[in-house]
């Protein structure tokens, strides 16, 4: 049962990744693209979790931690960049 469900979940997550990627390329403004990047990071965290179940390697969760961390830092950095751009 689990392998079948995992295939469905992979499919749904890929679809979500594709939609987020469309917004990333099309987004009219820079903040839209940043939001899309955030979402892609969340989806990749989900991907890594599902892959950990699929392969049975629990160490993959460390990868998920690092991705969540860098996504947060990237969001903060982008926001600083955006706000400073308006002040000068």
């Amino acid at each position: 049962m689990i392998p079948f469900v995992i295939n469905i979940v992979y499919f749904l997550l890929s679809l979500a990744l594709l939609l987020a990627f469309i917004r990333l390329t099309r987004g009219p403004s820079l903040p839209d693209r940043v939001v899309a990047l955030e979402l892609i990071a969340s989806i990749v965290v989900g991907f890594v979790g599902v892959h950990a179940i699929d392969t049975g390697i629990s160490s993959l969760l460390d990868v998920a931690i690092v991705i969540a961390l860098t996504a947060f830092l990237a969001a903060i950095g982008f926001a600083r960049f955006l706000e400073r751009g308006t002040q000068e």
């Binding site: 469905i8 749904l12 679809l15 969340s42």
Partner: peptide, 13 residues
């Protein structure tokens, strides 16, 4: 897992 994937898909839509 299905709930998680569903939420992700919802966010993307």
């Amino acid at each position: 897992l299905l709930a998680g994937a569903g939420f992700m898909l919802l966010a993307a839509v």
